[in-house]
Design a protein around this nucleic acid. Sequence first.
DNA 1: TGATTTTTATACTGTTCCGCATAATATGTG
DNA 2: CACATATTATGCGGAACAGTATAAAAATCA
Lengths: 221, 221
Amino acid sequence: MVQKTRRPPPAPAKPDSASEPKRRGRPRAYEPDVALGRALDLFRTSGFAATSLDDLSAATGMNRPSLYGAFGDKRELYIKSYARYRETARAAMADIFRAQLPLKKRLERIYRIALDIYGAGDAQPQGCFTVLTAASEAVSDPVIRAMVVDSLAELDKAFASCFRSGKDRGELPEDADPIVLSQLASATLHTIAIRARAQVPRKELEAIVKGAIGLMCAKAK
Amino acid sequence: MVQKTRRPPPAPAKPDSASEPKRRGRPRAYEPDVALGRALDLFRTSGFAATSLDDLSAATGMNRPSLYGAFGDKRELYIKSYARYRETARAAMADIFRAQLPLKKRLERIYRIALDIYGAGDAQPQGCFTVLTAASEAVSDPVIRAMVVDSLAELDKAFASCFRSGKDRGELPEDADPIVLSQLASATLHTIAIRARAQVPRKELEAIVKGAIGLMCAKAK
DNA sequence: TGATTTTTATACTGTTCCGCATAATATGTG
DNA sequence: CACATATTATGCGGAACAGTATAAAAATCA
């Protein structure tokens, strides 16, 4: 007798009857998506090295072999978690970046969402994955480095197009440089990610954001 | 016979004959200062969790018990390394912050030194200790968190006084807010620390710095 | 029902980890 | 010289670690 916990049939993780033709063997006891989400949370709070497979196993409810089967080894799981984080963050901001709102309003919303993602004001703020754990791994792992570089560039580009369209609509002075402004906007995001992690009160972070927006959106005088 | 390597008398670490009255027992085979420097390097590149005591022992040339004797356990050593990093960085920038130079010149020099400290352009850039390893530990360790908060605040303050004196000398428009500018200056430092870690070429970082300085030092039009 | 397939559960392997105990070594002191 | 002191050298002990082997369990298929 190897198995001690005799659970009731583990509740078919998700019917999902639509597309699935029919799974052959024993059904999964986990939902890959939520499991990856749990793993992501752990990696965000503790980083790569300090997060053990036992922790991951406990958090996801999957035992070690299942983790390997589903996601590969620890590093692969980390990379998939990071990819997941990026998708989530991107999705949360995409609408706003695309929206046809006044520049200032758009920036305000972007930063508000960022503060939410970073957990600003929480007891255990997580900060930004890119800034706070991935960047550290970037030195030793080329794949992660490429993802970090891509993340940074992607953000710069999104901000840049934001400023460009703002300039086109006359919300910025003629000599405003969208590239420079975008880098400053990214920098502001980075600095609040770091400060959030150090549990600087959300009020202060909002003040920083407000000041930065004021400076970036200054009309020529 | 426990001892295998029979070295020649380990060369009295440092005469330092001046103040030292006379050391009693077996002389140290290491110089605490350089050992701490080596430890700092390791922690900067790999972070807390991924740096093992064996690594530290190898890098410092001290065996484990000596490490404990000199610096305490791993966490204490980490904290002392961080303190050392802060001192070094502070010292490197202090003169410039104090100097009576044009604002723009001062900023340029500050950022150039920062890029040097971060190892921008190196094969294994280290970035900023505060941003890249300490901030990660800040969530779980109140002492480190306090140091991080203090570091951030210290930098803000130094920049703020920079901008204040610049404003007094008429290098900034009347409505320039030194506080907001200082936060942006810090943010710029943070963003280049992160990008340096991801091995963004130094040229690009210098471009970011140039753009940021241009924006921060813009005279009213 | 019995064979096949897929996943879960448990335990094992070999390594690495941190901290410390013990003993050897090198100096100053009486 | 013998003794006290301070440091180094080695290695132990128990825990945690990542990854995997093996076997049980739960489903489908014939």
